[in-house]
């Protein structure tokens, strides 16, 4: 596949809708296509029921959509998605392959790159084409302490786009494209890692990822009881509670509360961090917030480097007065 052409997007579904991350990846692919003189953008989507997703893919920027509908894809096992993506890359023979750095993408894209005999640029915040038509990506490294720029030397170049790095295109129902069933035989034997049990613990109230306000606590809260006022504050502001990794590792809250590089990435309008030092690991999960407000006893804490407003003081004294005053203001 030395002479690839065009861009292939490895798509994801949310239910039977095209996932937002895939609309973002298609938007990035259209920009790259523009830089390559209009090379075609294709999309592969796989699931048990694709619903209207293929058409949504065309509206969101794809010229060709390869589809795979199979019961083997129940629960989207990475083993099956890898096989689909590999096959799609063989058929489309692209110059670039773009996916999303999601729970699924993290399991799938490195394996796809490896099978294609090429390298994956991971966790890309930006993607561009250089003068030699190489794909060049910027990405945070060392937990965001540095930004690296990497150029892909092989074809196809594979990149995992960091969610929420690119605005999706406005869906355009007048766009036209081709929908084709991908020629692949899938059977259960492809799935080597078998899910035998799944326990969902849906978060109470607003999902962290969707919340407009997130109130997060760290080790500085001293224990699980420290989170009680944070819960009050979150409910007052119609937001959700988050936590640093140290809090979840200590068992004060379940890991579903964890904000950070290995936890959830949140993008609220307001992120209130209480007793959080702001290790880069944590900031990677919240630095896209519109405004960060920090309460921490150490004025030199890293969190204040990214905060818009801060109080350097004892949270046990600052927080009750802050909450009381907010109550008054919001009445």
């Amino acid at each position: 596949m030395a002479d690839g052409q065009g861009i292939l997007v490895i798509g994801e579904l949310a239910g039977s809708e095209l996932a937002l991350v895939t609309r973002e990846a298609l938007s990035a692919a259209r920009s790259l296509s523009g830089a390559l003189g209009g090379e075609p953008v294709s999309l592969v989507i796989a699931g048990t029921d694709l619903g209207d997703a293929p058409q949504q893919g065309i509206s969101a920027g794809a010229d060709t959509v390869y589809t795979v509908a199979s019961p083997v894809l129940e629960g989207t096992p990475p083993d099956a998605v890898v096989a689909v993506a590999e096959r799609a890359a063989q058929v489309a023979s692209p110059r670039y392959v773009i996916g999303s750095k999601t729970l699924l993408g993290r399991d799938v894209l490195p394996r796809v790159a490896f099978r294609l005999g090429t390298a994956l640029a991971q966790d890309c915040a930006t993607l561009e084409v250089d003068s030699q038509q190489r794909l060049v990506a910027t990405r945070p490294v060392y937990g965001g302490s540095a930004i690296a720029k990497v150029a892909c030397l092989q074809t196809p170049a594979v990149a995992a786009l960091r969610p929420k790095s690119v605005e999706p295109l406005e869906p355009d129902a007048s766009r036209t494209g081709e929908i084709k069933a991908l020629d692949i035989q899938l059977d259960d034997s492809v799935v080597k890692a078998k899910v035998v049990d799944r326990t969902e613990r849906p978060s109470e109230g607003i999902r962290l990822e969707d919340a407009k306000v997130v109130v997060s606590g760290g080790r500085g809260l001293g224990g699980p009881e420290g989170f009680e006022p944070l819960k009050d504050l979150a409910s007052l502001l119609g937001g959700a509670v988050g936590a640093s990794r140290a809090v979840c590792d200590a068992g004060w809250l379940p890991s579903s509360y964890q904000v950070g590089l290995t936890g959830k990435t949140v993008t609220p309008d307001l992120y209130i961090a209480v007793g959080i030092s702001g290790a880069s690991q944590h900031m990677a999960g919240c630095s896209s917030a519109r405004a960060i407000v920090a309460i921490n006893k150490d004025a030199g804490a890293n969190i204040f480097k990214e905060a818009r407003f801060g109080v350097a003081g004892d949270w046990q004294k600052v927080l009750p007065a802050f909450i009381d005053q907010l109550h008054e203001l919001l009445q």
Binding site: A119, S145, A146, K149, V150, A151, L153, E306, F309
Partner: peptide, 19 residues
């Protein structure tokens, strides 16, 4: 298959206003 072509420290955000 990848070449590092740049490495930089991130631009720091706006200075924090301490209340």
């Amino acid at each position: 298959g990848l070449e590092l072509v740049g490495l930089a420290l991130p631009e720091s955000g706006a200075a924090c206003e301490f209340i």
